[in-house]
Amino acid sequence: MTRVAAIDCGTNSIRLLIADVNAGDVNAGDVNAADAATDGGALRLGDIVREMRVVRLGQGVDATGELAQEALDRTFAAAKDYAGLIRRHGTGKVRFVATSATRDARNRRVFVDGIRGILGVEPEVITGDEEAALSFAGASSVLPSRGADPVLVVDLGGGSTEFVLGDAGGVIAAKSVDVGCVRMTERHLRSDPPTADQIAAAEADVDAAISEAALLVPLERATAVVGVAGSVTTITAHALRLPEYSPAAIHGSELSLAAVRQACTELLGMSRAERAALPYMHPGRVDVIGAGALIWRRVLERLADVTDGRITTAVASEHDILDGIALSIS
């Protein structure tokens, strides 16, 4: 057994997973465990700690190209808390991964030096392709195997969205594009609620990004679609009309595309006050969930079109890049 700590630092949130890695079978429906095929058999992640803080590291990066000092301060404060948890739980191996916002920032060295000083590990600013592969590993680790049938995993983040087509043999093709809920909110959806013109401009950006991804990822080959990350799981909670945010209720849920698109349309049209009143809405997602809903809706509409209606449902997974990071250091 090995105890590991994985940290995923994205555009909107920073998350920590401390887990024990054990060989053995696992129930794929258990939200507190993940398994993945390895040369030595199955690996199981037994959660010790899962933490998420919305720090909005990517605040303003799309416009300025730099990480704002107040965003760095919020992120460093969370990292200090995580360092305490890692020490308390006696973690042997730690991997810190930073994604879209840090990739785009000219002053990322300030971030890298700060995290190294707090945690004693070198933060890895990974490429979009690396992010995609880790997201696929995390999501596919807890989903029933579809064998040779290709599955599309879509990781809808704050600054970027990853499209990963894969099967039981691993990743077939992957592409990361620069559309995410924070980036699209800051760039387009500034009104409360957004105007029709703002929505149209955001949709044009998203459609262009999907087309860019489709040049490398054959979306038409997908036989199923799995969405991961906070925007997708929150949209799923809305579609399910949950009385509170429940990972167990969300994970593995398979809903019709019509139901998910309707949930997206509702969230996009709400005011911030209306979204804040929803019992499953994290405060840090209130202002950006509309953009997340817009992106997810356009992705599902494109998939329905290119697969000639073969894909009629979407699956939500609570396991994503964070689990992939943990599995990668086991």
Rank of each mutant, 00 (worst) to 15 (best):
Gly309His: 04
Leu57Arg: 01
Gly92Gln: 10
Arg221Asn: 13
Ala101Gln: 01
Asp305Ile: 07
Thr236Val: 09
Cys264Ser: 10
Ala204Leu: 02
Ala132Asn: 00
Asp39Ile: 11
Leu300Thr: 10
Ile199Asn: 11
Glu254Asp: 13
Val49Lys: 08
Glu162Ile: 05
Pro150Asp: 04
Arg261Asp: 09
Ala222Tyr: 03
Asp129His: 06
Thr99Trp: 06
Thr11Trp: 08
Arg106Gln: 06
Glu124Asn: 10
Ala139Lys: 04
Glu318Lys: 03
Ala202Ser: 00
Ile311Asp: 14
Ile118Lys: 02
Ile48His: 12
Ile311Gly: 13
Ile126Tyr: 09
Gln59Ala: 15
Ser100Phe: 02
Gly166Arg: 05
Thr223Ala: 11
Thr265Lys: 15
Ile199Met: 10
Gly65Met: 14
Gly169Asp: 15
Arg275Phe: 02
Leu189Trp: 04
Gly84Ser: 07
Leu322Cys: 08
Arg95Ala: 03
Val55Pro: 06
Leu278His: 03
Ala137Ile: 03
Phe76Val: 11
Val61Glu: 08
Pro144Glu: 09
Gly158Met: 00
Leu43Cys: 08
Ile118Cys: 00
Val21Lys: 05
Pro243Gly: 04
Thr64Lys: 04
Asp323Ile: 08
Lys93Trp: 10
Ser13Thr: 15
Asp81Tyr: 02
Ile7Val: 15
Met281Leu: 09
Gly10Asn: 13
Ala273Glu: 12
Ile126Ser: 08
Ser176Ile: 12
Ala229Asp: 11
Leu303Asn: 14
Ser231Phe: 07
Leu43Met: 12
Glu254Ser: 15
Arg88Val: 07
Asp73Gln: 10
His282Phe: 12
Val182Trp: 07
Gly284Asn: 11
Ala248Ser: 06
Leu327Ile: 14
Ala79Val: 09
Ala78Thr: 13
Asp47Met: 04
Gly128Gln: 10
Ser160Val: 01
Leu67Asn: 07
Thr195Leu: 01
Pro150Phe: 05
Ala316Pro: 07
Leu85Gly: 09
